[in-house]
Design a protein around this nucleic acid. Sequence first.
DNA 1: ATACATAGTCTATATCTTGAAAAAAGTCAC
DNA 2: GTGACTTTTTTCAAGATATAGACTATGTAT
Lengths: 398, 398
Amino acid sequence: MVRPERRTVRDLRRGNRAVLLRALYFAGPTSRHELTALTGLSAATVSNVTGDLLADNVIAEAGLVDSDGGRPRVLLRVNPTYGFAIGVDVGETHVRVELFDLDMNELAKSEFALRPGGHEVDVVVRHILSGIDAVVADSGVPPSKVLGVGVGVPGIVERGPEAMIHAQTFGWDSVPLGALLRAGTPFPLHVDNGAKTMGQAEMWFGAGRGSRHAVIALIGSGVGASIIADGVTYRGANSSAGEWGHTKIAIGGRDCRCGGRGCLEAYIGAEAVLERAGIDVDTSTEQAAFAELVTSGSPVVDETVEFLGAGLANLINLFNPERIVVGGWAGLLLGQHQLTTIKQKAAENCLTQPYSTASIVLGRLGPDAVALGAATLVVDEFLLSTTSSSASREPAVS
Amino acid sequence: MVRPERRTVRDLRRGNRAVLLRALYFAGPTSRHELTALTGLSAATVSNVTGDLLADNVIAEAGLVDSDGGRPRVLLRVNPTYGFAIGVDVGETHVRVELFDLDMNELAKSEFALRPGGHEVDVVVRHILSGIDAVVADSGVPPSKVLGVGVGVPGIVERGPEAMIHAQTFGWDSVPLGALLRAGTPFPLHVDNGAKTMGQAEMWFGAGRGSRHAVIALIGSGVGASIIADGVTYRGANSSAGEWGHTKIAIGGRDCRCGGRGCLEAYIGAEAVLERAGIDVDTSTEQAAFAELVTSGSPVVDETVEFLGAGLANLINLFNPERIVVGGWAGLLLGQHQLTTIKQKAAENCLTQPYSTASIVLGRLGPDAVALGAATLVVDEFLLSTTSSSASREPAVS
DNA sequence: ATACATAGTCTATATCTTGAAAAAAGTCAC
DNA sequence: GTGACTTTTTTCAAGATATAGACTATGTAT
């Protein structure tokens, strides 16, 4: 219950450095003058800290801007090639590895297909490791400049060096992915649930920008959510928070693939929706069939929208977000055709006060943003703690 | 998205002062030596800061303890009469005002009954204000030592100086309680939802102690929850987070008094349970009737337990707490007789991983802890920011 | 050229935390 | 009792930081 946390005078600098760097990263090219307003720091401190950061090559000058009859402003920005981040997306059908600079430009990419149901741990691990080697080689980035690797996986990821994974539908039970990967790569590692990484991608670059309290609802074959509380992904005690898909929406209702009954996923997950509509598909035809179903006017779709609205209403009642982002491939398809109805059903099932302050919007990044989001884990860490080079400037002249 | 937040070198002291004071408050009598371990601060800093706090009379010495063959430790503790906190409980049937010292000993109390349905704003405001005057007078505490007043009310409370309240079942729609009270009392004011204040009471002094991620589920006539994320009450964008009672557990199910259908409250709220059992009561006989029903072996109770288990499972799936505290008068009655079954039903409706790391326990403070919790709002603020007396010690000798 | 405006840096100052040394306040063996 | 030893707490000097305000840099306007 010890909430505040401060220590030495040195932590101050580290903290202010992080504040400034973060402001610069998200505000884009900015002058020192503007940074004083953005960070609340004094002009002198901004000057000092930016001086440090420039000396460390973390940031760079980015042109001049005339000011209204005075000395022009020097724009500063994060040096996009100071370091690079690798993002990995482990999905049902593929392992995708991408390498980004700090501006999140994709510089290299490597993809492996997985056989349906073929999720053997050692196969996936091998794909990830060789993918990492491949993107580093392809991009020509020196390994010393790789800041880390972020990995988005299905299921529940325990925090900690082991990064133990529990993913029932994926066939992984207590897999220490962190330990396995660390044995094969020297880069700092960040493993997280794929829904959470995608949520962070939407928050940084997509439909979540600018909000501090948001929920990113992801609807694909399965259903998940990423909860953003005060700008930070909410994880709970063991990082499994946000398991929206298996909350009960109907006591004793339909069987769910998790083994339970009446789960939300059993009503709005694409697999379940197609099953309810009596359409038989495999993973390769699922998306096309679902797209067709959505526009068919089937009563199953109406029912799905009703359940989705109620599910979103529950999220709003419990989390009181300012924004709900509907994403995932199935969610986007549903939303493109039915957003108005979805909102209406959410309103019907929600308390008026929290509903009135929440906006429901569609995701903007598409379903392929898991790797991007995974890479943001690395960047987030970078923004929080660039080690100061502690070069004492101006050693006493004598 | 600017997460870290630091500023000048003076904030350091303020922060460390708060860290130390908080550690001292929750650890009880503690020596300086132990405080270095508890806070992570150096012995020198502990000495300096405790010196300040002693000079300000915020803390006091509390005896000696022999150490194994060395200088004995001087125990320190928060001075319980440094200041006093007033807690107010605005309930369906009463307005209760209590005054506590910092050890949360109740020094005075004042209670007013409300006529059923008689919740006129001006009546309640008058009761609160005269209650404040009464407890200050009765206790003999000088007004200058009253640190503030915390108020727990039904419904949604918007943060801010207005403290706008929206409480449908209470008949209050957009009542600026903060503004109304501030006009009648000079004390600093903290208004919050009653479920949240009770949750904080359970966290500080009850079944929640020691956990950082918890949910306090409150079941009375109505149903609410208080979510504790990383030691802090989670409020969301507009402080309405935690409206568990009106999440949907059955699409198109029973009518709820909120106007919606299929709300959890319509199945497990005491009023709804009695109604389902065909028992007709008013507010005065409600609790006795419910107590009798719980032990009667009625199938309605079994059904209620089933819904409660599913509702708790949803909380666990979404929030991943390490602890769930079941409270509220109806929740306690149910739990005393059915806790095993409740846990079993929760397990059946929950993913195994998050369920296995969550313990479900009964509240320990009883249903009357709203005022206590409201007073903790004041103490929390006190622990966060005791203004340093800034007496520069040792002015340069000359 | 001179006045004015805006951006950014430098200097002096007041604080802060800390490690090390010193002081305080005991116990214990003899 | 006394000196050695232990443990707790305070003192002191050193190193680091942010800030206000003076100062410099670099423009435009007239």
